[in-house]
Design a binder for these strands. Structure first.
Length: 803
RNA sequence: GCGGCUGUGGCGGAACUGGCAGACGCACCAGACUCAAAAUCUGGCGGUAGUGAUACCGUGUGGGUUCGAGUCCCACCAGCCGCACCA
């Protein structure tokens, strides 16, 4: 090799070499480390520099772990079912599997250019029948355990994707995938009872090494609240209305009741005089879009003509219907305390209903309220509850109610069951057969997978019927239970199905007896570090946790939480916008690899900014990293044959380098790792000029530390330094802290808090000596003043307060 | 509306538990090398005043705590993100 840094030659050479002799092999003597990237959807656009950011980060950690002596599992695969492939197929009249295969080939080529440690033997593809066999198997287990069930109800329907959406996919009333406004449609759908796991999904968040942000997003989404259920008897009727409230302390202030328009007893509760108005109101509410219903703050409603009795004071209160009450949260009925709830206050003002204050802020007089008061205070106007502290009463009242048989303590969740079927072609068929006599029957496990049939038209319909429904020879089958004619379920699973458990399959991807063997799972899983974008915080990450907990419960996996540590890398934008084909602002890594090399791009991806924050892409900065690698090349190349003993100063730099790089790498503050490399390399070069060269140990340390980041150049320089084996066999160096102390240190000098000068002192100098020297240095500034106070922070600063 | 994050030169960003703000890099300027250019190397690079050493100002705004604040506390402003009538 010549003295020029020929990255093309070097990278080509080592990529080929590593493919022949992988640097990371399974070796059970070593501890394990499972480092996982969120697997990509193999899109036609390919990968952009934003994808690389996460992949490079996880690869750096993987290589670091190899150097530390771990056996590392760092796999890659394809989340390949889903709408884009299907839409592409419809447009180009080709089968989605072909488009998918093409895209996988292209993305795989790009991934090779990162030179990540991926072990391609472990590859998984969610559209492979050998894979989705187990996606279906899990569904069958859920069905058998009563966690998969059918239900007809109004669902979020995306008119553009032409399929139903899960609640998690329809936040803000828009489709998570395409942004279209979601409408409601009454359909029979398969549901997964994720709510059965609500409490565990919430509680176990505490055990995870995830960012507070994602944990909070999940716990808010699960939305646990504590309160009471209270029964209100309806006047002149056998009916009782149960309400859920988190503020039972305000019960005496309840002056009316509101039901959701969909509440089951609305018709029965409506008097003949009010019938017309209530029916009209309920009809209007049903046609209102879910967005309007969520965002219209202006209150509307209708009086049913009926009254019920407040159980704590016997007062009769009117029953209204209003669409600000949600049918599927709590009981669908709300006790209204206008004095202490903003929504109830607005409603009472609008319809002129009585407002009774029952909580008085401490130290205030009772006066007419201009807005609802929701804080703590003293209870008033509440019979024998008077004088209690409101927030204490909140805890006590449910027990009082329970003793009197008027209600009970209860909890509620915002989380809803998961709408699991989709009316599209390119997904896993739901392995269920509908039989007139036996109902819904699971396809026997030995008949899995239920293969996705070839179909002439993949086109979705507007009716909520799956394209599969038209393939009679596929739909018509026999009931596995009774053998009579039956029909297959024609809906497919959502794209989340395959991604909810893929991390389990990597550890044992060729297993045809089980989704993964217990031994392999125990060896590798759970994932030690999971790297991906934050956009899946309440989607994939919640679903995967749910799946894992279920599989744990049925004894299929030996742990409850799939991802111990989660790292969410920030998005890379271009000119402030998300990179997308339609905006034409996609920056492909391909040209950059061509012009600067993989190593430069890897380091630049990390250098652009703090990895957890979004950042805007700018090509020009890569020059700096490229120049740095050239400097390293030259430094090592020019000094490798010199016989120089390590000097004290160089030993200091070398050990500080190890110390800083290791700490920053552990903290995943990768941008500061790169700047640290530059800083120390500059210092080493300067020192080398002063002392006429660099010792070999320092060069070797630099090269080994650099290996996870710029593996090709490191491997090449390692060879140049005379080693036969790979740099990844070198072991990660440890800093010798005894070498990191200096004889003399620089102290900053302040006069009255203002920085004035610096001075060098012996590192072990005592306070008196330092202060005496400081006053000497600052003599001219202290002239004519009296010293009031002297402060010395050892090793850092002297501050002399003088007047 | 509620909750969270962020705010530092022309730009991306450093600054660990309060202790020399602007590390490192980009861009820019000057010099060396060169017939010339590129590459490379050397130096400069927050603002204002001054020939100058130097002085004063400076981390979104206003206040506070402290010998000392980018860092801690209070109030506010701006931007981004999440949730959004969850009783």
């Amino acid at each position: 090799m010549d003295s020029r840094y020929d990255f093309r030659e070097i990278e080509k050479k080592w990529r080929a070499e590593w493919e022949k002799n992988p640097i990371n092999k399974e070796d059970d003597v070593k501890p394990k480390f499972y480092c996982l990237d969120m697997f990509p959807y193999p899109s036609g656009t390919g990968l952009h520099v934003g994808h690389w950011r996460g992949y490079v980060l996880s690869d750096v950690v993987s290589r670091y772990k190899v150097l530390q002596g771990y056996q590392v599992l760092h796999p890659m695969g394809w989340d390949a079912f889903g709408l884009p492939a299907e839409n592409f197929a419809i447009k180009n009249n080709m089968h989605p599997s072909i488009a998918t295969a093409n895209n996988i080939a292209n993305v795989k080529r790009q991934l090779h250019e990162i030179s990540a440690l991926y072990d391609w033997d472990k590859e998984v593809d969610t559209t492979d029948p050998n894979y989705y066999k187990w996606t279906q198997w899990i569904f069958v287990q859920m069905f058998k355990h009563g966690l998969a069930y059918e239900k007809e109800m109004p669902l979020n329907w995306c008119p553009s994707c032409k399929c139903v959406l899960a609640n998690e996919e329809a936040t803000n009333g828009t489709c998570e995938r395409c942004g279209a406004t979601v409408t409601k449609k009454n359909l029979r759908q398969w549901m997964l009872k994720i709510t059965a796991y609500a409490d565990r999904l919430l509680e176990d968040l505490k055990t995870l090494d995830w960012s507070d942000k994602v944990k909070k997003m999940q716990s808010d989404w699960i939305g646990k609240s504590y309160g009471a259920e209270v029964g209100f008897k309806v006047v002149d009727s056998d009916l009782t209305i149960n309400v859920y409230t988190t503020r039972p302390d305000t019960l005496h202030g309840c002056t009316f009741m509101v039901l959701a328009p969909e509440y089951k007893d609305v018709a029965a509760l409506t008097t003949p005089e009010c019938k017309e108005a209530v029916e009209k109101y309920c009809f209007e509410a049903s046609t209102k879009s879910s967005v309007d219903r969520m965002t219209d703050k202006e209150k509307t409603g209708a009086f049913t003509g009926s009254y019920c009795i407040n159980p704590v004071n016997g007062k009769q209160i009117p029953i209204w219907v209003a669409d600000y009450v949600l049918a599927d949260y709590g009981t669908g009925a709300v006790m209204c305390v206008p004095a202490h709830d903003e929504r109830d206050f607005a409603f009472a003002k609008k319809f002129d209903l009585p407002i009774i204050q029952v909580i008085l802020p401490e130290g205030e007089e009772e006066k007419e309220l201009t807005e609802a008061y929701t804080g703590d205070g003293i209870i008033i106007n509440s019979g024998d509850w008077n004088g209690m502290k409101a927030f204490e009463a909140k805890e006590k009242v449910p027990h009082i109610m329970e003793e009197k048989g008027l209600g009970k303590k209860t909890v509620n969740y915002k989380l809803r069951d998961w709408v699991f079927s989709r009316q599209r072609y390119w997904g896993e068929p739901i392995p269920i057969v509908h039989c007139e006599h036996c109902g819904a029957v699971a396809v026997p496990e030995d008949q899995l997978p239920v293969l996705l049939p070839q179909v002439e038209s993949y086109k979705p319909t507007d009716t909520g019927e799956s394209p599969l429904a038209h393939i009679d020879e596929w739909v018509n089958t026999t009931c596995p239970k009774c053998g009579r004619p039956a029909k297959r379920e024609t809906n497919t699973m959502p794209q989340w199905a395959g991604s909810s458990w893929y991390f389990l399959r990597y550890v044992d991807n060729h297993n045809d007896k089980e989704l993964a063997s217990m031994d392999r799972l125990k060896k590798w899983a759970p994932v030690d570090l999971y790297v991906g974008g934050i956009e899946h915080a309440v989607l994939h990450l919640l679903y995967a946790r749910f799946y894992t907990k279920f599989l744990y419960d049925i004894g299929a996996v030996p742990f409850e939480e799939p991802f111990q540590r989660l790292f969410n890398q920030g998005m890379i934008t271009k000119n402030g916008g998300k990179m997308s084909k339609s905006l034409g602002n996609v920056v492909s890594p391909d040209d950059l690899v061509q012009n600067y090399g993989c190593d430069s791009l890897r380091m630049y991806e990390l250098f652009v900014g703090p990895p957890e924050l979004d950042c805007d892409w700018d090509d020009s900065g890569i020059d700096g990293v490229f120049r740095f690698l050239n400097r390293v090349w030259k430094l090592v190349y020019n000094n490798k044959d010199l016989e120089i003993a390590p000097t004290k100063d160089m030993e200091y730099l070398r050990n500080k380098l190890i110390f800083d790089i290791t700490n920053r790498l552990e903290a995943l503050t990768m941008n500061t790792v790169v700047s640290g490399f530059m800083e120390y390399t500059n210092k080493i070069i300067d020192l080398s000029k002063q002392q006429g060269g660099v010792d070999k140990q320092t060069l070797e340390t630099l090269v080994v530390l650099l290996a996870p980041f710029a593996p090709h150049i490191a491997e090449e320089l390692w060879k140049e330094l005379g080693h036969q084996e790979s740099v990844f066999d070198a072991g990660w160096p440890e800093a010798d802290e005894s070498k990191m102390v200096q004889d003399t240190i620089e102290i900053a000098l302040q006069v009255s808090g203002k920085f004035r000068d610096t001075m060098m002192v012996a590192a072990d100098a005592d306070k008196e000596t330092v202060l005496a020297k400081a006053k000497e240095v600052l003599a001219s500034r202290l002239e004519g003043k009296t010293v009031v106070k002297e402060i010395y922070v050892p090793g850092k600063i002297v501050n002399i307060i003088a007047k």
